[in-house]
Amino acid sequence: MDTFLLALIRENQEEIVNKWLEEIRVLGNENSLRVVSDQLFLNTSREFVHLIITNVENTKEQLSVNLNDFSERIIKLGWPLSYITEGLQQFRKVIHCWLQERETAPAGQLRIMNEVNEWIDPIINHMVNHYSGSWEHTVSMQKMALQELSAPLIPVFDNITVMPLIGTIDTDRARKIMENLLQGVVKHRSEVVLIDITGVPVVDTMVAHHIIQAAEAVRLVGTKCLIVGIRPEIAQTIVNLGIDLSHIITKNSLKNGLESALNMTNRTIVKTSVGENK
């Protein structure tokens, strides 16, 4: 940027910042930012515009590092991309108007516009690209975590494990269920595994096929599989669809399934009375 314009901006930095804050304050009323206190919003916005002004003479590498750090922090705060894009557009507008008030000649105003655009446009492009990439990475990591949690295998007794399934089962999730099931029964040395479908709202042909495949795969590694949580409406659907579960042990509840699993491992539940041996 022209050294004279840069010096002028720096000398009047606080005035420019305050004008910009007046323009950008409306962004703080968006639903996505209402949970942020006014003070935090103002402090972060002030830091944002100071960052833009003070880094104008930095190398591209240093500017990139500083902008990336700021982007990462507002992503963690959950602020929308519009805060960056609209905020920078408002800053461009404020700078244009403020400088043009001091330069009345048309040629000078055109030069100012070009100088400001060459200054602001690369910052917008960089921050949008970094924000988008970071957000996609965050979403990807969250998706992976949810997938891990969507098919947990829980050891409940020695050699007995339970996999509770909740929500809709699609092809991707069915593959994850199969992977976790096979890895888990080997890791926990399970003799019996219970697949609990109490929380699965709909069991159609595809879902039943995936569950049967999982049960067959478990059997091939030497573990017995029970399907539990078959509600009356699910049982009726299975019958109407003509799905054959005759070769798989099924129970209507996790409680009954655990009792059967204990019997399969030569154990039983014994009721005792408090103080019986006294």
Rank of each mutant, 00 (worst) to 15 (best):
F4L: 11
L5P: 13
A7D: 14
A7V: 04
L8T: 11
N12E: 04
E14L: 06
E14Q: 15
E15Q: 12
I16L: 15
I16P: 08
N18Q: 14
W20I: 09
E22K: 14
E23M: 11
V26Y: 07
L27W: 13
L27G: 04
E30A: 02
N31H: 12
S37I: 09
F41I: 03
F41P: 00
L42D: 11
N43M: 14
N43E: 15
T44P: 10
V49G: 09
H50W: 07
H50Y: 12
T54F: 12
N55G: 09
E57Y: 06
N58K: 13
E61N: 03
Q62Y: 05
V65N: 11
N68E: 15
D69K: 10
S71C: 13
E72K: 14
R73Q: 13
I75N: 00
K76E: 05
K76L: 00
K76A: 13
K76M: 01
P80Q: 06
P80R: 03
L81C: 00
S82R: 10
G87P: 03
L88E: 07
Q90W: 00
F91S: 08
W98C: 13
L99R: 04
E101T: 14
A105D: 15
A107D: 08
G108A: 13
Q109F: 06
Q109C: 09
Q109S: 09
I112A: 06
E115V: 10
V116G: 02
N117Q: 07
P122I: 08
N125I: 10
H126C: 04
H126E: 04
N129W: 05
H130V: 04
Y131S: 03
S132C: 15
S132Q: 10
G133V: 03
S134H: 06
T138N: 05
S140M: 14
M141T: 11
M141G: 04
M141H: 04
A145S: 01
Q147G: 13
E148M: 08
P152D: 07
P155M: 00
V156R: 12
V156L: 13
D158F: 09
T161C: 11
P164Y: 05
L165A: 05
I166E: 04
G167R: 02
T171E: 14
D172R: 03
R173L: 00
R173D: 06
I177H: 00
L181C: 03
Q183T: 08
V185D: 01
V186D: 09
V186M: 14
R189I: 01
S190E: 15
E191T: 04
V193S: 00
I197Y: 02
T198K: 04
G199S: 07
V200Y: 03
P201S: 00
P201W: 04
P201F: 14
P201D: 11
V207A: 09
E216K: 12
E216N: 10
A217N: 09
K224I: 15
C225K: 10
L226H: 01
R231M: 05
E233Y: 02
I234F: 01
A235D: 05
A235F: 07
A235T: 01
Q236C: 00
I238L: 08
I238A: 03
N240Q: 10
G242C: 09
H247C: 04
I248N: 02
T250K: 03
N252F: 03
S253Y: 06
L254E: 01
L254V: 06
K255Q: 08
G257Q: 12
A261R: 11
A261E: 10
L262I: 14
T268L: 01
I269K: 13
K271N: 03
T272E: 14
V274D: 07
